[in-house]
Amino acid sequence: MRVRPLILTAAVALLLPLGVQADELDIQPGQWEFTNVTSVEGDTPFPEQTHTSSECITAEDVARGPDFLQVEENCEVSNMDMTSSTMTYDMVCVEDGMEVDMRAELQFMGDRIEGHMTANLESPMGPLVMRTDITGERIGECE
């Protein structure tokens, strides 16, 4: 799971349809490294998963606001609250007949992003709660 498409797509790309207006996000353009650490609670233990990715975010990306990214057709965002430095939202995605309810909270701090997402889902193994802790930092100029 890539942070930028999942988090920023679900929030930034839907601002215009939701009628939310915010100042430009406090994200400095450049090469960014994102790390997601996901843990799962449930009757069946799952090992913690860590995923790291790197991506270039340009000034044009940040300035485009709601046109920055696209959201998956199978997801719907609600309860969006956004300022230049914070973002919270709920999202429901349906895939392969399974509904996933998510709540995300993020903080933008210029050269860093921190936050978490909690997802509740019914799986063949029973109810699961997934928590993903998200960190991102600007690591230099775009490659």
Score class of each variant (00 low, 15 high):
E114W: 09
P47V: 08
S85P: 00
R64N: 14
G19N: 07
E60S: 13
E95M: 07
F108C: 05
T83F: 02
G19A: 09
D81R: 15
A119W: 05
L15W: 02
N120D: 13
E24G: 01
D43V: 06
Q28L: 10
G30R: 07
C75Q: 12
L14G: 05
L15R: 12
M117A: 04
N79W: 05
F34L: 04
E114G: 06
V62N: 07
L16F: 05
P5C: 03
P66Q: 10
S123N: 08
P127Q: 11
M87L: 15
G126R: 15
T58H: 09
I113K: 03
M125V: 05
G42D: 07
C75P: 03
Q49Y: 03
G110S: 09
T132N: 07
S85R: 14
E95Q: 15
A10W: 09
P17S: 07
P66L: 13
C56L: 12
N120W: 08
P124C: 02
T9S: 14
D90P: 14
L25I: 10
V71A: 14
S53K: 04
V20G: 02
M130W: 03
E72Y: 02
T88A: 08
A13Q: 14
M98R: 15
P124M: 06
G126E: 08
T9L: 05
Q107K: 06
L16R: 09
E24Q: 11
L15F: 03
A63M: 08
R112V: 05
Q21M: 10
R103Y: 07
P45C: 12
I57Q: 06
V40I: 11
F46I: 05
F34K: 03
T86K: 14
N36P: 00
G42L: 11
